[in-house]
Amino acid sequence: MSNAQTNPAPAQIPVTILTGYLGSGKTTLINHILSAPHGQRIAVIENEFGEAGIDNELLVQDSDEQIIEMNNGCICCTVRGDLVRILNELSEKKADGRVKFDRVIIETTGLADPAPVAQTFFVDDDIRDQYMLDAIVTTVDAKHAQSQLDQHHEAQEQVGFADRILITKSDLVDDTALQNLQSRLRKMNSRAAMIEVNHGNTDIEEILDIRGFNLNAILEIEPHFLDDVAHDHDDHITSFVFTEKRALDPDRLEEFLTVVINTFGTQLLRYKGVLHVDGMEHRIVIQGVHMLMGSVPGAKWGAAEQRQTKFVFIGRDLPKEIILKGLETCIAE
Results as ranks from 00 to 15, higher is better:
217 A>K: 15
217 A>E: 15
217 A>T: 11
217 A>Q: 12
218 I>Y: 01
222 E>K: 14
223 P>G: 01
224 H>C: 07
225 F>T: 09
225 F>L: 06
226 L>H: 00
229 V>N: 05
230 A>R: 08
231 H>F: 10
231 H>Q: 12
233 H>T: 11
234 D>Q: 12
236 H>W: 05
238 T>A: 08
238 T>G: 10
239 S>C: 14
239 S>K: 12
243 T>P: 00
246 R>E: 09
246 R>K: 15
247 A>L: 03
248 L>S: 04
249 D>R: 08
250 P>S: 07
250 P>H: 02
251 D>L: 14
251 D>Y: 11
251 D>R: 13
252 R>I: 03
253 L>R: 02
255 E>S: 01
256 F>C: 06
256 F>W: 08
257 L>R: 09
257 L>H: 05
258 T>A: 10
259 V>P: 03
261 I>W: 01
261 I>T: 12
263 T>F: 04
263 T>G: 07
263 T>K: 15
265 G>F: 05
266 T>Q: 13
268 L>I: 06
268 L>F: 04
269 L>R: 00
269 L>Q: 03
272 K>T: 03
272 K>A: 02
276 H>F: 00
276 H>S: 05
276 H>R: 12
277 V>R: 07
278 D>A: 07
280 M>H: 07
285 V>G: 04
286 I>K: 04
287 Q>C: 08
287 Q>G: 06
288 G>W: 03
288 G>D: 03
289 V>K: 01
